[in-house]
Each structure stands twice: as C-alpha cells, then as structure tokens.
Design a protein around this nucleic acid. Structure first.
Lengths: 239, 239
DNA sequence: GCAGTTTAGTTGTCTATACAACTTGTGTCA
DNA sequence: TGACACAAGTTGTATAGACAACTAAACTGC
C-alpha cells in the first residue's frame, strides 16, 4: 500500500504544536507567560507574521490569552473546543443506517398564548404556527417534537409535507440561522407525550428546549422530548 | 455618561461582517460561491493578506469552506460555534452568588472491577482511587459525584481535602486536560443516590458520564447525577 | 471523440516592513 | 511621597510581494 505522503507541517502549525505540547505536559502552567513573538521569532527563525498567526490561532482556540501591550499567557480555564451543529434528526438517523419515519399529530395555525407569544417576540393572541410530530427510528418513537413557528419568518410552513421534510430541515432552508439558545433537562413526560412515545409515565426523558433566531426575529421555539431509555447526547472534545 | 469610544472595526472584521450578512440574510445560499480573494481585494481596496485572514477565519468558524485551487463556498451545514469549558462546580456555584458545600461519602483505594479497569485503560484488579461526594448549593444537594481516578496520573489524589478542593479542580491542576468525552442521559437515581440527594426515587435525573484523558493516559471517569428538578444544562450559540 | 497537456484562476504559506495602541516599569520633578 | 512623563516591550493590524500547490476549464493532437 502506498504510504501517505507526509508533507512537512506548515511553520505556524509547528509553533502551535510546540506550545500545545508545553501546555499539555504541564511544563507551562495556567497563567504562566508564553514567550513573546520576538522570542519565538528568534527561537524558530521565522517572521513575526508567522509567529503571530500561531499565537493568534491558539488564542482563538482558547488555549492562551493575549493582552495588547502586556503579553501572552497560558489560559487559566480549560476550554475544550467543539463544533456543534444544529442537526436534522432525519440525517442523524440516516447516518446510523436506520430508517426515519414521522407521525404527524398536529399541524395548525393558532392564536399564541401569552408565554408562547413572549418567547417568539410577538404580541399575545398573534397568529402562530403549531406542529406536533413524533419521529420514529426503525419504527420506534424516539422524539416528540412540539414546535411553534413565527409565521413572518416561514410563511409556507403549514404547507410542508412533514412526513418527508422535517421542520428543522425546512426552517434551516428557509430561515438562515443566526443564533440559538437551548437547554437540556430531565423530566417526566406528560400523559400525552408518554402515550405518543409509547413509554410509561414514570420513564425519565431528556427534554431539549430550543429557541432559534433568524435575522432580527425569533424563528421558532421547540420542545423536543427524548425517552431516556432510547437516547442520549454524547460528544468528545480535544484540547 | 461618556459614550463608549467607537473605534472603527478592523478591515478584516468588516469583510467578515459583510460576508456573514449575505449568508445570514440568505442572499448567499449554502454551496453558493463566495467572491475570490482577488475579487474582494478589488471590492474593498485591501491587500490580499487582509482578505485572506477574513476568509480563513470564517472557514475556521465553519461558515464557509475553502478548497485550494478551486474557491470558497458557503458551508452547507449550520455550525454554531461554542466554547465549552470543563468547569469546576465550585466556581459555577460561586458565580451565582451561592455557597458551595461538599459532603464526603467515600475516599478509598480499591481494586478495579473489569468495566472500570477497561475504561481507565488498566488491567482488571489494578489499584484505582474511588471517591463519592455530594455537592451542595446553599445546603441543597445538587450533584452526586462518583469518580474513579487513575493513580498513575494523580498519585496524591487521596490526600486531598475534598471539602475545600473539588476533584475537578485538583485534577485540572495536576493532570493537564488533553481530551474529554462525555454523554448526558436522563435516568432514575438508584436508591443510594436518591437518599444522598434527598429526592424521591421517581424523580428523573440528568446523568453525565465523563472520561478525561491527560497525555496518553485516562485520568478519570466520573458519573455525575443532577436532580432534574434542580439543574439543567443551558447554552447559547451565535452563528 | 478522446486523452493528454497547457493555462488561467484560486487558495496556502511565508517574508520583511511599518505604524498604531496598549502595558509596565523607571525615572524625574515638585 | 506622589504625580507625571517617558521609554521599552508587546500585541494588533495592514501592506506588497513572492512562490507553492491545487483545480478546472480550455486547448491540442491524434
């Protein structure tokens, strides 16, 4: 088998690796000073712009902090960079090689109650779109999704065929995402959720509340309920 | 009140804002081409290095993808950058202006059972450190923490006074973090956990399983149980 | 029509230089 | 002693130029 051609890493990467190594090994402790750009120039024989790029990227990754006029230090906290993605549950299931199905429970335009209107940034009684779906993985309910959508942001929302296009997919396509807030809690399902998910009312669930903003307007608020026995969030980080 | 002096944003930031605007407004859709560096140079009257920095940073943030020789395009997925941090629960509570207390339940050296040894990358029966603590916020139990530690990574672990220093704090200080994996589930507490947390056995809990790696060795594995009625994970993202 | 070659366009990296803005310690002067 | 000025050191930004590496389309010869 042909060996992968190993191109020498760029100079700025070598500096980053060098500094990362000192931090990871503990020889440079949090709040310790990192050599100045001038010192690294001399040590590695590189131009300042190259050294600057290495340090600037490490700062962006959160490993060091830089203060103009003062210097560079090893960051005190231990940030672990991650790249989260608003994922479409359909893709997520397809990626596992499973089949995704959808049961449509409610598709309607309603007058918003006070709390819903507030969260969507509308006045109480304003028209909102409301959908309730159950997503199935290989036929088994995995997510109960109760969503309110701002009609101004996605006017065609109610015409979507939710058995073939998920709300997340449609909204990402029609309302570019600019901001999102979320929270994850452990809760018991209410009677209706338990029945639709086919679980006992005593089974704990992960409840994700998510609010997405598109441009200046709140696009939608969603409550997604996952049975604790069938789902968990997982991830990994590298310093 | 003195108005905050508004310094003109750097040129590369202006380009980033310009491009971000086109993506957020939807005029540039996923997979659409972004103007080349040469085109942006002409449009903004800037040097290539400045334009390059703007595009490179947008690529690092996941908003665009760049292919050498081909060009720059709007990224297809909707990444939402975040900066997670391995936080010390003591700091977290202190930040809310509350007081943190710790109840020490177990501090011991044990022989690892098969599963624990496997996860720590040790042989079955190897010596491991085992602690069980309950963290209190204003006197109320908020986290049950069951942790196994690799003695090779933190030999002094058992001598720590856990009423004043949390395991997380000690480990971050003595074993620089290089990698972490985690998962979050909804579960019911077992009898012992429910008793120590002072909750009913039917109350759902958020269970975080975390495995941290320091250098080449697994540093520790922890199971942290949060009562669902008293805790949730929250965060926000900006595209 | 096809295969191979060339060419224009694009991104990746690096240098040398310049000036601005900020921090920190030192020295001076009252 | 204290207030102020100054200088050295450091990071932030921007430029102009250069070469390398890669892509994709156009071109050429058969």
């Amino acid at each position: 088998m042909p060996r992968k051609k190993t191109v020498a890493a760029p100079a700025y990467e070598q500096i980053k690796t060098h500094i990362r190594g000192h931090i990871a090994s503990g020889t440079w402790r949090p709040d310790d000073p990192v050599p100045s750009e001038a010192a690294l120039m001399a040590e590695f024989g590189l131009s300042r712009m190259t050294v600057n790029r290495a340090l600037r990227e490490l700062a962006a990754e959160g490993l060091v902090t830089r203060v103009k006029g003062s210097g560079t230090r090893v960051a005190a906290l231990h940030p672990i960079s991650s790249q989260l993605t608003i994922r479409d549950i359909h893709e997520e299931i397809a990626e596992r090689g499973h089949t995704h199905g959808t049961r449509v429970i409610l598709v309607a335009a309603e007058k918003a109650d006070g709390e819903t209107a507030r969260q969507l940034g509308l006045r109480a009684g304003a028209k909102v779109f409301h959908t309730i779906l159950v997503h199935l993985e290989n036929g088994v309910p995995i997510q109960y999704e109760d969503r309110h959508v701002n009609p101004a942001v996605a006017p065609g929302y109610l015409e979507v065929d939710f058995t073939s296009i998920t709300p997340t997919h449609y909204l990402l396509d029609h309302a570019p995402l600019t901001e999102a807030t979320y929270s994850v809690e452990a809760r018991l399902p209410d009677a209706h959720e338990a029945r639709e998910l086919g679980i006992r009312k005593t089974e704990p669930c992960l409840v994700m509340l998510r609010r997405t903003v598109s441009g200046a307007a709140v696009a939608s608020i969603a409550r997604q309920v996952y049975p604790g026995s069938r789902y968990r969030f997982a991830g990994s980080f590298q310093a």
